[in-house]
Simulated scan of single mutants.
Amino acid sequence: MKKYHALSLFSVLFLLVPCTTLIDVSAKTTTYNYFPTDNGPIDTSYSGIVTTIGNKPFLTLYTFNNNQFSLIRNRAVAPKTAWFYDQTVSRNGEIYYRIATNEWIRFDELEGFSGHHNRKHFEKKTITIRIGPVLPAPVFDGKLNDTGKTLAVGSEWIAFEKPAYLGDNAYYQIGKDEFVAGERVINLH
């Protein structure tokens, strides 16, 4: 017991002595980068949900062709809405998230996003769905409440490959807690 007390007393005294020497410490770290390399290839290693900012009446969308972005003039995204993204790319210092088939939104028009690394064994595959046949398709939340949003006839959306079964019917998830009825989907690819 006396050795223990002597060791404890030595430890306390050692801790009370101020440290005047700086010590360099290095450690190996791993950085998970949610942002793609500027002017690099399309990054599919992350996917998740992005939420648009709320201080604009609408948010612009872009197409990505021949390695550059062009403004889409006849479509926009509503403020304060959540969208599933499955690809990111950076061009000339601007970061873009793909939220629909060849429809991208810039990082500066987002106020929040959550993402995860797409590990092959946990990956949810995505498909493109086309809405039909005559009327816009209503969007429901996971409790089958109508969100008030609709998807235009003929529009294409990114959805999880396997439908979710809510009640007795199949629904495709197109965003965070956003689903469209499988009966409204006319084309999967």
Rank of each mutant, 00 (worst) to 15 (best):
M1F: 15
M1A: 15
K2D: 15
Y4K: 08
A6W: 06
L13V: 00
L13I: 01
L15T: 08
L16D: 01
C19S: 03
T21A: 00
T21S: 00
T21W: 00
V25R: 03
S26A: 12
S26F: 13
S26T: 14
K28M: 10
K28N: 12
T29E: 15
T29V: 15
T31A: 12
Y34A: 15
P36C: 06
T37K: 15
D38K: 05
D38V: 11
P41L: 07
I42P: 01
I42Y: 03
D43T: 09
T44P: 00
T44N: 15
S47P: 03
G48E: 09
T52A: 10
G54P: 01
N55Y: 14
P57S: 03
F58M: 09
T60L: 13
Y62N: 06
T63S: 13
F64C: 02
N67A: 09
Q68H: 14
Q68T: 14
S70I: 06
P79M: 05
W83N: 05
W83E: 04
Y85S: 02
D86R: 07
D86H: 09
Q87Y: 04
T88W: 01
T88R: 05
R91P: 05
R91M: 05
N92W: 04
G93S: 07
E94Y: 11
E94P: 03
Y96S: 01
R98K: 15
A100W: 05
T101E: 11
T101M: 12
T101Y: 14
T101D: 13
N102A: 03
E103W: 06
E103M: 09
W104I: 04
W104E: 00
I105K: 03
I105S: 02
I105W: 04
I105A: 02
F107W: 06
F107E: 06
E109Y: 14
E109K: 07
S114Q: 13
H116T: 10
H116M: 13
H121C: 08
E123R: 14
E123P: 00
K124Y: 07
K124E: 14
K125D: 07
K125M: 04
I127H: 06
A137L: 04
A137F: 05
L144I: 11
L144C: 04
D146C: 04
T147M: 05
G148Q: 08
A152D: 14
V153C: 03
V153Q: 02
S155M: 04
I158K: 05
I158Q: 03
I158H: 04
I158A: 02
F160Q: 06
F160H: 10
F160E: 12
F160V: 08
K162M: 10
K162D: 08
K162W: 05
K162A: 12
P163D: 00
P163N: 00
Y165D: 09
Y165F: 11
L166K: 09
L166A: 10
G167L: 05
G167H: 04
N169L: 14
A170C: 10
A170Y: 12
Y171P: 06
Y171L: 03
Y172W: 13
K176D: 14
K176R: 13
D177A: 03
V180E: 02
A181W: 12
A181Q: 11
E183L: 11
R184Q: 12
R184D: 13
R184C: 07
V185I: 10
I186R: 11
I186A: 06
